[in-house]
Design a protein around this nucleic acid. Sequence first.
DNA 1: AGCCATGCACCG
DNA 2: CGGTGCATGGCT
Length: 225
Amino acid sequence: MATGSSDASDDAVRRESADAAGPSQRCDGLAAQRGLKDREEGDKPKTLRGKAKGADGKAGSSPKGKGGSGGGGGGELLFEKMLTSSDAGGPGRVVIPKVHALAHFPSLEKEREREVPAVDTAGQRYRLRFRFWVNNQSRMYVLEGCQPDEAARRLKAGDIITFSRGANGALVIGSRQPRPGEPKAVLVQGPLWAAVLNVAGELYQAFFESREAALEAANASGLGA
DNA sequence: AGCCATGCACCG
DNA sequence: CGGTGCATGGCT
């Protein structure tokens, strides 16, 4: 494969989808994000991968042993997801990315739905339903019954919901705010373009209102070419 | 080719 | 009229 060189430009510029009718929230400024590097299977800008272990998010490279977190104090982080407006808005249905659904939730090979007991970090217990919808020739996995938790935590689109496994194996739900500088792309509405910029040797992600502007900035920063 | 966000039709 | 389940479309 001869890809190689200018991968950056293609990967760097990606369009954010517009949410038809909504409060016109313009991004006139510049949202910067440091440290882009998650890249594994099907990763979406909206799906954040948890690499932080129990303590603060120190960017350490862990050699893949599962129990890395070891004693942390709270539980082993399974994955987290930034809530979309669909996740947070209505009936409390949270779409679970397939890879995580298959990895961390009970298999639905035979059942169409499965009850998943869960506890939040405050000790409140919830009864969630893990199920799937048929979509095209595949499946879409959804966690239902999240509304109480979303309400209790005042979760809105752009907030991050975390799924951990407690010591007893129970599913633990938590949430956190995106750290400053973390992409809140889901909150941005309207047709925007993003570019990865090289600013003084540090990588940033910036959003623009036109593809041209994004490309121009990318070129200027030295990553476009 | 596939995923997922979201709209919406249908059914209670 | 509200919610479930689905289909479509945008994006990777």
